[in-house]
Structures are given as structure tokens and as C-alpha cells.
Design a protein around this nucleic acid. Structure first.
Lengths: 227, 227
DNA sequence: CGCACGCTTCGGCGGTCGACGAAGCATTCC
DNA sequence: GGAATGCTTCGTCGACCGCCGAAGCGTGCG
């Protein structure tokens, strides 16, 4: 799946082999919505033991259909690239509805917004990061994600007091949303600024963060979709 | 491949299984150009014995990817429908160049035009049939292919004396071109008219037909692409 | 520091499937 | 009618692969 050149008979058969097993197709179908999911969850989705799932996931990664990224003691898997998703779509297997999320005992507040290693996570963190990327305020450089000047200006205009130093961020997987959000020093700095500006308020117990009315208003103005 | 509904994990795996074998992908790739090819040729393309090829072809037909049609002691296989071709295309396996034709000892005259059960076959027969279809002069009815009035008028204007009776034709596979041409009573009638009008002249030996200069001119006027 | 947890690797079992040769059936040609 | 041809079916062998339990490794938590 690296180049767009026509596949020969062997490459096509190899691709077919990867799709030839219901356990593997179940995992792929669970990932077509772009989420990244840990191996154990994919094993459960496929109805097989973690040992068997590990072998399948290895084959899918070796075959270029999946990408793995370890985070803590979890190992998240996602589709390798957009073309894999498009290929699956073209096989008419894209489901209209996203696969149901793994049942989590985390309460609603925790799922909505929380701090993750000092930066913003949860649905709000994912949406905020997606917005920065969509507006090209966040860009990928050799040393990681960095904030472009126009993005910094927009955030400052919204009331955030940003640190002037060139900070870099990195993608961080969200364990409830299963999507990327902004971590690293840049993520920490932005989250700290939001806390200082009163957009977010830490709840007494746990890591949940409570967005304020004013914070939600400012985020909405910036273009962040709010539930 | 019968409906466009999203595939579940088992249907997708079944489709993958069909693609998981190089011998089968070789056959499918040989058919993506829309041609129909006999089992023996497909076996040669895949590099396997006829016995093994027969099993593969049976699976592909049962899986809805191929369609078979017996003609004489040959059994021609082609892609089941357009969606199969599109699916293969989407897997980036459509080749820009058509697979090289099976080497045939038939001489050039025979390949160009000949009679096949009393109707016109060869490259000229295929091109003539395609033109009739493209111009909507030929239409598919419940009893077979029939000539529409405007088509009959155009052919008569070109100098062919057509029988007035409502004749029906049927698709006939061309063994050198591997494409459909017009057979059945309608095909026989049209070919007979061409012979009577001097467009075609039967060669003394064999079944080859020699188009005349006037015949080629008239066919060109009708829109038939000539080599 | 030790336990719990998530994931991977290893070993072995069983089923599926692809390969072929030989035989059988249908069609065509002489 | 008999031989030749094209294709399918049958029987059998061997390889591959999916499955699991058990063990090993690394991370995170108390």
C-alpha cells in the first residue's frame, strides 16, 4: 500500500490474504472510522484471544494496512493511511454508523474534558486539536507540531496569554475518544493558558476539567465544534 | 457482489479469500479488460493445470466474481458485471495495457473477418456489432437483440437489402477477439446482405471473408472503426 | 519493590485448501 | 463412427494457517 502503481497478481493475492480472515476484517471494520484502538479491544471485537489477535495484528501491520503505536502499556492500532481507508470504502464495506465505542466506566465529565499529563484531553481536547489542524494554525515540522503565527494571534485575541517561546507539541492518543489530540510542551502551554484564562476549571477529585461558559463561548468562536 | 449494501466481516472475508490466491488473481487480472477467455487459456495465464484452474474458476463463479458461458467445446469466462471490474480497479490493479492476447495461429485474414455459423465474426464483426449498439440501432428485447427502425433505415441507405421480417439476434463470443458480436438469425441476415451487396467476399479456402473497398467505405460511413 | 495488567511469543493441534494425475463427459473434426 | 480436444470431477497428498494455552516481557500503580 505504499505506491499507487497497479498491483501484480502476487501483491493483489497478498492483499486478499489479509482480508481473507473474518477476525482481521472485523478489526479493520472497527478502525474504518479513523479511530485507534488497543489490541485487547480489537481482540474482543473479533471474538478471539489476545494471543490470536496479536498474530493477526502483526500480519496487518506487516502488510501495510495498519500502523501501531505503543503508549504506556497499551498498544494502539489504526489504519496505516488514508488510502487503506479508501480501499476499504471502495469495497463497499464502510459502515454508515461508527462502531460503538468500547464501554468505558469513565464518567461523562471525564470523557468530555480532562488533563492528560498536564495537557487537555477528552472530547474537547480532540476537537480543539482538530480545529487547530483544520485552520492550519498547527503545522507539522521536523521537531514536532508547532503553532503558526496566525494561530497564536487568534488564540491571543481570544484571551489566552501564550508563552512566547517556540514550543513543540506531539500527537497524543486519547483513550476515550481514540483519536489524536495535542500533547507535548505546546499542549501543556495551551492548556495552562486556558486554565489561567478561566476557560477550564479543575474539579476537586480526579483529572476531569470543567469548561466554563465563557471558555465554551471563546472555543465556539474559534471554530471548535461543541457536542 | 449482488447488492451495494455494506459488507459485513464475513462477506468481506469471503471476498478476500477469493483474492487470496495468485492463480485466481492472475485470472481476474487477465479479464479486467472485459474480454471473455476460455478455461484453458486462463489456466495457462495462471501457470496451473486445467484441473486446478477448473476448481479456481468454479470458486470465482460461485463467489459472484465471474460468469461462465459455454460455447461449443469451449467454456468462456468473463467478469460477472461492471461492479466487479470497478472493484478490481479500485484495488489499483487495473492495468493500463490490456493483457497480451493469447497467441493464435489463425492468420491475419481470419482474425480480421470470417463467418461464424453463417454470421460475421472477427475484428470486423466485433466492431460492427459495437457500432450498432453505440448508435442504439440495436436494442435488447425479451426475445433477444433486434434492429430498431432507424438502424434498418441507415443500413438500407448504405446499400444493404434487408429482410423485412422481425429477426432476433443473440450475442456470440468471438474466439480471436474475445468479445461479443452479433449472431443469431439477425446476424445471419445482416451478413448475408453484406455478402449480397459485395461488401464481403468469401475466400476460396476456409471461413475467412475479404472485405471489399466499397464495403469498407460504407462501413466507415456507418461509423465502424476500421483498424 | 512487587504485583497487576496488557501484549507478545512459543509450541502444538486441527482444519482448510491448493496442487496434481487419472478418469469421465461433451463437442468437434475427419 | 472413431479419434482428438477441451473441460470437469474425483481422489489424494502436503503445506499453510488459524486457534488456543502457557510462558515471557515491559509498563504502570500502590
Amino acid at each position: 500500500m505504499d505506491d499507487a502503481a497497479p498491483l501484480n497478481r502476487y501483491q493483489l493475492a497478498e492483499l486478499g490474504s489479509l482480508l481473507a480472515e473474518p477476525a482481521r476484517t472485523a478489526m479493520l471494520l472497527a478502525l474504518v472510522d479513523g479511530t485507534a484502538r488497543p489490541a485487547g479491544e480489537l481482540a474482543h471485537v473479533a471474538g478471539i484471544t489476545p494471543a490470536t489477535a496479536s498474530a493477526h495484528l502483526r500480519r496487518l501491520v506487516d502488510g501495510g494496512l495498519l500502523a501501531a503505536c505503543a503508549q504506556g502499556r497499551h498498544r494502539y492500532y489504526r489504519l496505516a493511511n488514508d488510502r487503506v481507508a479508501a480501499m476499504l470504502e471502495s469495497l463497499s464495506l464502510a459502515r454508515a454508523t461508527a462502531p460503538r465505542a468500547w464501554p468505558t466506566k469513565a464518567d461523562a465529565q471525564l470523557r468530555r474534558a480532562r488533563c492528560c499529563y498536564r495537557h487537555l484531553a477528552g472530547a474537547l481536547g480532540v476537537a480543539f486539536c482538530a480545529t487547530l489542524l483544520r485552520r492550519d494554525w498547527l503545522q507539522t515540522g521536523s521537531r514536532g507540531l508547532f503553532l503558526r503565527p496566525d494561530g497564536a494571534a487568534a488564540l491571543t485575541a481570544s484571551g489566552l496569554e501564550l508563552v512566547d517561546a517556540p514550543l513543540y507539541g506531539r500527537s497524543c492518543l486519547d483513550w476515550t475518544e481514540r483519536r489524536m489530540h495535542l500533547g507535548g510542551p505546546l499542549g501543556v502551554m495551551l492548556t495552562t493558558a486556558m486554565l489561567q484564562a478561566g476557560w477550564l476549571r479543575p474539579l476537586p477529585h480526579g483529572r476531569a476539567l470543567q469548561p466554563s461558559a465563557g471558555g465554551l463561548r471563546q472555543l465556539g468562536i474559534l471554530g471548535v465544534p461543541l457536542d
